[in-house]
Structures are given as C-alpha cells and as structure tokens.
Amino acid sequence: MPGSSAPQDTPTRPRPSGLVLVACSGGADSLALAAATAFVGARLGWQVGLVTVDHGLQAGSGQRAEQVAAWARERGLDPVEVVAVTVGTSGGPEAAARDARYAALADAARRHSAAAVLLGHTRDDQAETVLLALARGSGPRGLSGMPVHRDQAGVRFSRPFLDLPRADCRAACAAQGLTPWDDPHNTDPAYARSRVRAEALPALVATLGEGVVANLARTAGLLAQDTAYLDELAAAALGRCRTGSGLAVSALRELPAALRTRALHEWAAGLGAPRTALAHRHVETLDALVTAWRGQGPAYLPGGITVTRTADILTPAHPAAAAASGRDHPTESGAVSGKVLES
C-alpha cells in the first residue's frame, strides 16, 4: 500500500507463493493487519486473501461486511469472501460467536487450501485474556492466553500482531487514511471483555503504570512455554497409563499432580468430552477416583460420558452404552461423582 506505515515484520512464514487468508472485521486491528499483509505479501510472493464474517448480531452487519470485502478487492486481495454465520447460545454469546467465527474461518481455509489464517489480536487483547482467565480461576493453560500459532481443525491460525500494542494498529490505519469500524459490542458493558477493556485494565494501568499490559502479555508467554513442556510430559505419561480402553490407577497414582491432572484432562477430551465444556471440576472428580477413592460413584463428563473405577482401572462409558444399560446420568446438571456442583 503506497505510503504504508503498517508494521513491516513478516506476519507469518507460509510456504513460498502460498495463500494466506486474513480474518478481517473492519476494526482497526484486523484492518491494519490486512493492509500490512497485502504490502508484505506482494514482496514475498504470497497470495493474500481475506475473509470477513457476518455474525448477523447487529442491524446492518451484512452491509458492513460487504464494505470490508469491497475494500479488500480494491486492494487486490484474492480470494475475498463474506461468510454469514448463525450464532448459537452454547457457552454464552461471546463464546458462541467465537465458535461460529472460527468454524467459518477454518472452512474457508480448507476450501482454498490456505497455508494460514491470520488474526488481528494484539498485546492488549492478550492482557485482557489473562485478566479474564485470572478472574475465572483458570489454571496455567488459561493464563497462557492466546498462542501466536495454533493448529485447529486442520488449519493454522496465526496472530502476527500479538506483541504489538493496539495503539500501533490505530496509528497505522490513520497514516494510511483507513477508517476502521468500531464494533459497539467492544464497548457494551454486557460483555465481560468489554468491561475489562473499558474499566479493569485502565484501572491497573493507572495504578501500576503503562508496563502492566506488556507484563501481563509476557507472563502469558512464559506460562505458555511451561505449559507446553508439561503437556508433552503428560502425553507421554498418559501413554504409559493406558490399559485397553481404560487407565491403570496404580500408574496414575505414581505421577506428580501436575502431570496426572493434565493426563486425565487429555484422556477425557480423547473420549469425546468437548474441550470447551471440560472444566476443572470434571478433572478434579476424575482425580478423586485415583487419589481419594472411597467407593464413590462414577464421574460424569460433558458429552454424556461416565467414568467408573473398578479395582485398579478407570473405565469409560459413552452415552449409547449408558442408555443400553438403563443408567441415567445428569450430563448437563453439573453433577459429578454423586454430588452436584455449581457450574
């Protein structure tokens, strides 16, 4: 882009002449990313495309999405798509919109055989994510925030601006004469992230100084490294604990808690428990079958899965098996191991 002052760092490193798709809402962050990727891509021989998702949650959302697409076509991006999605209700409005958006982006990437989908999250977004995770009592995985790269549903998602402040993206748009769209949802106090953005994080900055945003993001990066290493150790440990379709309690009991709970979490996800619904309380109840065994009943996991302990083995049962045996288990009530916990 002539006169572009957008960051010149390479957004990602797909194969030469590969296609990268930019996810662009029209906001300052993703608009700056699209402009920067077009500028860099032209010099590195990439094909650069753009996908904008219409969530249909606001009046005129379809028209705004078409405006973003028209801008991208004018800049020579190809392919350019507007994808309309239906947002469900699972997990609340923010999570449902995010799930619908990522599914649409992944589908577009697969259809076009894209090397990567680029996302416009910034250092400020990372700091907000860490604060939200801290408030929700998340463990190290939640406090690790968003990764720079993640392979999901067979697609590589990358966040090249994750170490840049949000203000740089606005400055880049202003320097290039680009007019970003400010999503009113980003300032709606009904949403937790909006409240963190408008109130909590500014209060921390006012109290502790400007460096708090970078420090929160840095903390996420350090925790991500530790978590990745522990996850590798836990995956190897899980393999040693497997016995048929179950897990050997004696082998699990020998593991340090940090590895044992990670192994149980991964095992539960492998059984089919949705990761977005698999909470600490589920893993805690599985762990109790190993470390606090008093003959208690089964652990109930998301997706209608039950896990029982018989002698030295944790054995899973799926919904179909439970139905065939006539068992009734409260998969949505939050009941685990015979007691009800608040979700």
Rank of each mutant, 00 (worst) to 15 (best):
1 M>P: 12
2 P>D: 03
2 P>A: 04
2 P>C: 03
4 S>W: 01
7 P>I: 07
13 R>W: 13
15 R>L: 10
17 S>P: 02
18 G>A: 10
19 L>I: 09
21 L>A: 02
21 L>R: 07
25 S>F: 14
26 G>P: 15
27 G>R: 12
33 L>H: 09
36 A>K: 07
38 A>I: 04
39 F>P: 02
40 V>A: 03
41 G>R: 06
41 G>W: 08
45 G>P: 00
46 W>H: 02
46 W>R: 07
47 Q>A: 09
50 L>V: 03
51 V>C: 09
51 V>M: 12
54 D>Y: 05
55 H>A: 03
59 A>F: 08
59 A>N: 14
61 S>P: 13
64 R>D: 10
72 A>D: 02
76 G>S: 06
78 D>K: 14
79 P>A: 11
81 E>V: 10
84 A>S: 11
87 V>G: 00
89 T>M: 06
92 G>Y: 05
92 G>V: 06
93 P>M: 01
100 A>M: 01
101 R>M: 03
106 A>N: 01
107 D>G: 05
111 R>C: 07
115 A>Q: 10
117 V>T: 00
119 L>Y: 08
129 T>W: 06
134 L>H: 12
137 G>S: 12
143 L>W: 01
143 L>R: 12
143 L>H: 07
144 S>F: 00
144 S>C: 03
144 S>K: 07
146 M>W: 01
148 V>W: 04
151 D>C: 08
152 Q>L: 05
152 Q>F: 07
152 Q>R: 08
154 G>C: 10
155 V>Q: 04
161 F>G: 06
162 L>T: 04
163 D>W: 14
165 P>D: 04
170 R>K: 08
172 A>W: 04
179 T>C: 13
184 P>H: 13
185 H>C: 01
186 N>W: 15
188 D>A: 01
193 R>K: 10
194 S>Q: 05
194 S>Y: 15
198 A>N: 06
201 L>F: 04
201 L>Y: 09
201 L>A: 03
202 P>Y: 04
202 P>D: 08
204 L>F: 00
208 L>A: 12
209 G>K: 10
209 G>T: 02
214 A>I: 00
215 N>A: 11
218 R>I: 04
218 R>G: 14
218 R>H: 13
223 L>T: 09
223 L>K: 12
223 L>W: 11
226 D>R: 15
228 A>R: 08
233 L>E: 03
233 L>V: 01
241 C>K: 13
244 G>C: 08
244 G>R: 04
245 S>V: 05
248 A>H: 03
249 V>N: 02
249 V>I: 11
251 A>L: 00
252 L>A: 00
253 R>Y: 05
256 P>G: 14
257 A>N: 13
257 A>P: 15
258 A>T: 14
258 A>S: 15
258 A>I: 14
260 R>T: 00
261 T>A: 15
264 L>Y: 01
268 A>P: 14
271 L>E: 10
275 R>E: 00
275 R>T: 02
276 T>S: 08
279 A>F: 03
280 H>W: 14
286 L>Q: 10
287 D>H: 13
293 W>F: 08
296 Q>T: 00
298 P>I: 06
298 P>E: 05
299 A>C: 11
300 Y>K: 09
302 P>T: 03
303 G>C: 10
304 G>V: 08
305 I>G: 15
305 I>C: 14
309 R>T: 06
310 T>C: 13
318 H>V: 12
321 A>R: 15
324 A>E: 01
325 S>M: 02
329 H>N: 11
332 E>H: 11
336 V>D: 05
338 G>E: 06
340 V>Y: 14
340 V>S: 15
342 E>K: 15
